[in-house]
């Protein structure tokens, strides 16, 4: 079991290092991640929303739907946390004891 997990770790590490050779250099302005829409956000944020902070305008305006989803996820996680522990408290007496 131990050797299997070490083997998997080595395999994943080899895969990741192989994939790393395809990534662009650090801070390359020509990298695909820096090309597509992110220059447009930086150029238009002031005239579109009067908000100099591009992070805020992208977060709440250009990608507001995404943020709504994230907020719902947080809320669901909180409700799930409440519900899991609520059940534990209510049927405290019926929970199975391991050695009985």
């Amino acid at each position: 079991m131990k050797w299997l997990s070490l083997f998997i770790l080595g395999l994943v590490m080899a895969l990741l290092i192989y994939a790393e050779t395809d990534l662009p250099d650090r801070g390359d302005p020509e990298a695909p991640a820096n090309q597509h829409v992110s220059p447009l956000y930086l150029e238009r944020t002031v005239e579109d929303t009067h908000t100099p902070n591009a992070v805020t305008s992208v977060l709440a305006d250009y990608r507001g739907y995404d943020t709504l989803g994230e907020t719902v996820v947080i809320f669901t996680a909180g409700i799930a946390c409440v519900l899991i522990l609520m059940r534990r408290r209510s049927d405290d007496n019926q929970i199975r004891k391991p050695n009985s």
Binding site: P29, A33, N34, V37, S38, P39, Y41, L42, E43, T45, V46, P52, N53, A54, V55, V58, L59, R63, D66, T67, E70, V73, I74, A77
Partner: peptide, 29 residues
């Protein structure tokens, strides 16, 4: 990625705001 009036709006001068947005929400999640 906060537009500075003295620097102008040249995107090459600012870092990419998109990963910051994604990770900001991802950390809280």
């Amino acid at each position: 990625p906060v537009i500075d009036p003295q620097l102008g709006t040249d995107p090459a001068l600012y870092v990419n705001p998109l990963p910051h947005v994604l990770i900001l929400t991802a950390i809280v999640v």
